[in-house]
Structure formats: C-alpha cells, structure tokens
Amino acid sequence: MLARRIIPCLDCDLGVPGGRVVKGIEFKQIRYAGIPWELAGRYYEDGADEIVFLDITASHERRETMTSVIKKTSESVFVPLAVGGGIKSVDEAREVFNAGADKITLNTSALKRPELISEISDRYGNQAVVLAIDAKRRYGQEAGREIVETPEGPCWFECSFYGGREFTGIDAIAWAKDAVSRGAGEILLTSMDRDGTYDGFDIPLTDAVAKRVRIPVIASGGCASPDHMLEVFQKTEASAALAASIFHFGEWNIRDVKTYLKERGVNVRV
C-alpha cells in the first residue's frame, strides 16, 4: 500500500541572491521563513516525503536562481523535488530537470497552452508533470459545470491563474480530467477559499477531484494542524497533503505530524 505523503511547500522569492522562502496571505503580510535550501534540508531531516518549490517572483534572473537553489538542495536532500512557477516551455522545464528536479509543476502556462502538458510528459514521462490547480467555489447550479455538494450548498469550482489574481471561467474538475488525458501525472489542488485561512482543507473539493481522476491528488490550502491532515486523509482519497506555514514557523515538526497520523491509523512513512 502506498503511504500518504506529507509535503512541505516552499514559496520562493528569487529576487534576492540565493532566494528566500516567504509566506503571506494573498501577497500581503509577507513573512520570511528562511533560505530555500536550508529549509529544504531541515524538512528532509524531519521526514518530508517530497519537497515542492514554487517561484512566486517575476524577476528577470529568477530561473538561474531557482536552478542554483535546486542544485544546492539536491546535494543533500534525497527525496523527490518538485519545482514550479513560470515554466512556459520544454526548454525551461529541461533547465529545472537538469538542475536536479524530479517533477515540474505547471499552472498558468498550461491553462494558456494545454499542449505544454503533453510536450513535457512525452519527453520526461507523466510522473514528472504535476498540474497545479487553484480552485475557487462558485455557488449555484450552472449548466455544463461539474457540480459538487458542500455543506454550504452546491457549487462548481473555477480555476484561477497568475497566482490567484485572475479568473479563467474554466471548470477546475473538467480541467483536471482534461489534464490527465494530456499526460499530467499528479494534481496539486489548492483551495483558494481555504488558502491562508487555517480552516482546514476543502474536503468536498479534494474528494470530488480525487474520485474523478485516477492519478494522485495533493490536497493544499488551509492546513493549520495535524487534525486537518487527518481529516483530509480520512474523508478523501488524497494521496498527499501539502502545507507551508505550520512547518515554516515552528508550529509543527513534520516528524511529529507523521507520528500523530500514524497513531490514528493513517499509513505514513515514519
């Protein structure tokens, strides 16, 4: 049986030499969490199953900074590394893979040009392409939408892009299915309603996507405690849970979270 994975996510501001890990709510109230490769090393030692790096900057030199961060990290971190943020072509993906990344994550660029998914997966395999979806609830029963029942009423989910600043009109669940057929190997599913709220994962969203695609789904957005991870693993088929702040600021250690989950019957690697 595959273990449920715990994945720390490093949002990286690469506009400074060496980069820095940041966390903020909708780019406001930004807090600095540390240096990317140092934090990655700490999480590796603590038992992270995988580490995600997301480039949230738009500076010109960022790609080079990201490749140096990955190179440095892969010298001492021996779990899978996923890297995303602004990758628009196979050439850009290649740079990141060559630096030591095992997977790349695509979001805005794939929404704008879905062929990018197959271009990269044809070359590097499905397992190397993670589709990131930022989904927001839209209440009501709109025709042609994938409707999900929630305690707050039926809704569909709309994809956003550009880091949550713009909306696409695209149905997130339909997009997830389309991306699978194009060769995405995994879905990193972030609830925009929950992200930054510390209210826990969006269970109906995670459940709906995990049931409708046959590839691993990483639940993201809203995690503030091991209880939230327990809930998402008990109530959905999510393969992994992603969190940032609770690890960055010393509230929880990954090892303690995994022990907590294991004691409650979740199959995790400890």
Binding site: M1, L2, A3, R5, D49, N126, Q127, G185, E186, R214, I215, P216, S239, A240, R269
Partner: peptide
C-alpha cells in the same frame, strides 16, 4: 491500481 505507482511503499 494507480499507474504509475508513484510514492512510498513498504
């Protein structure tokens, strides 16, 4: 089963 098998197994 999920194909590919991707993740940690015992």
């Amino acid at each position: 089963v999920m194909i590919p098998q991707m993740g940690w197994n015992s």
